[in-house]
Design a protein around this nucleic acid. Structure first.
Length: 195
DNA sequence: CTTACGATCATCT
DNA sequence: GATGATCGTAAGC
């Protein structure tokens, strides 16, 4: 049986921008009841703390952003626009704010279930946006603060997958901090939210 | 192809 | 009371 490892606490405890880039190509896994779904991370954005005006943590700790200040490697999930959940993974050592927003996946496993949860949209549009992927994988606030370095409902495998080209750009949907190129995506992937 | 807007609510001012 | 780390639909070109 193949020895599958998960990304470690140390992986997430580093600088947020580096973690965002290094998460590309890794395999995000969602275990939901008896169903297992998985996708390759093809787009991610870094959000830091008091030095990042686009971040929820810019003005300090609040009830919502508390996970960003906590132990690295946990889920930070928030509800926005009255409709959507967004999934982040916390970074930096405890006490330092940071999180990586998972913006898009390439579906790999459990695609039938994803289609059911997303009303049968085409495969290339199942998970090509932060709100879309949480709906496709059945992720909501009940998973907020889950430890993603342990096997459970949500985790990331340390997959051996490379040979792809990475590009960077400004982050999407924000008004400040546009000078920082903290969005990373896989060049040529049909599953990223924008080219 | 592009732009515009409503949904709908937690959070912050 | 306004806004938003979004999305789907509708309408315009």
């Amino acid at each position: 049986m193949k020895d599958i490892r998960l990304l470690s606490r140390d992986f997430y405890s580093r600088d947020t921008v580096r973690v965002a880039k290094n998460l590309l190509g890794k395999r995000l896994v969602r275990v939901r009841g008896r169903t297992r779904m998985a996708g390759r991370i093809v787009e991610a954005e870094a959000y830091r703390g008091s030095d990042d005006p686009a971040s929820h943590a810019y003005r300090g700790k609040t009830p919502r952003n508390t996970p960003m200040f906590g132990e690295p490697g946990h889920a930070y999930i928030y509800f926005t626009y009255g409709n959507h959940y967004c999934l982040n993974i916390t970074t930096q050592r405890s006490g330092i704010a940071g999180a990586v927003l998972i913006r898009a996946l390439q579906p790999l496993e459990g695609i039938r279930t994803m289609k059911r949860l997303r009303s049968l949209v085409p495969e290339s549009e199942l998970t090509n946006g932060p709100g879309k992927l949480t709906k496709a994988l059945g992720i909501d606030k009940s998973l907020n603060e889950v430890d993603m370095t342990k096997w459970g409902p949500l985790f990331v495998e340390d997959t051996e997958y490379d040979g792809f080209e990475i590009a960077r750009s400004s982050r999407i949907g924000i008004k400040e901090g546009l000078d920082r190129k903290w969005r990373f995506y896989v060049v040529g992937s049909k599953c990223v939210s924008r080219r």
